[in-house]
Write a protein that binds this DNA or RNA. Structure first.
Length: 154
DNA sequence: GCCAACGTTGGC
DNA sequence: GCCAACGTTGGC
């Protein structure tokens, strides 16, 4: 069982929105970066755990945990001309963009702030704390995950 | 809102 | 296939 971290802007869709979805489940659409796409399409498996990270907001940090309930399948918004994620160059027979479904698992009592994560000496290799990190989907090692969970759950 | 850092695009 | 220009990301 692998661990991942997904970024999202809570003003648009955050951990509380996920919790309120029917069946507490939502598809993770809109990822338009090739490296992140490869993770979604090839590597993220059903049952994997996902840290939900809130970016571009007042309280930047990890807000909770979700679980993958459906593995990579084509992101339908790429074929929707009304969507801001529309990609006219994507071929329906060979879709460019993928997504997974995630289900709410846990909301931490307090957001684990980015600042606190940066101060954890063991968390130095996580893309999140590296300079210029811009990936919206990134792997988290089991060791890092355990430390983050310990810290987040207090 | 600023701006540094990064990914993508497109001319050559 | 290089690389400058451009657009986007995301912390602050």
């Amino acid at each position: 069982m692998a661990y991942w971290l997904f970024k999202t802007e809570p003003d648009t869709f955050g951990i509380d929105d996920l919790k309120q979805r029917p069946n507490q489940t939502e598809h993770w659409d809109g990822v338009r970066n090739y490296q992140a796409r490869n993770f979604l399409r090839d590597d993220i498996k059903e049952g994997d755990w996902v840290f939900i990270y809130h970016s571009s907001c007042k309280l930047v940090g990890i807000a909770g945990l979700a679980q993958v309930v459906r593995e990579g399948y084509p992101d339908h918004t790429q074929f929707d001309s009304q969507s801001k994620y529309h990609d006219e160059k994507s071929d329906p027979d060979n879709p460019r963009w993928y997504m997974v479904d995630v289900k709410f698992s846990e909301r931490f009592n307090k957001v684990l702030p980015l600042k606190a994560i940066k101060e954890m000496p063991e968390i130095r290799e996580l893309g999140l704390v590296k300079k210029g990190h811009r990936l919206s989907i990134m792997p988290v090692t089991e060791e890092e995950a355990e430390l983050l969970l310990l810290r987040a759950r207090g």
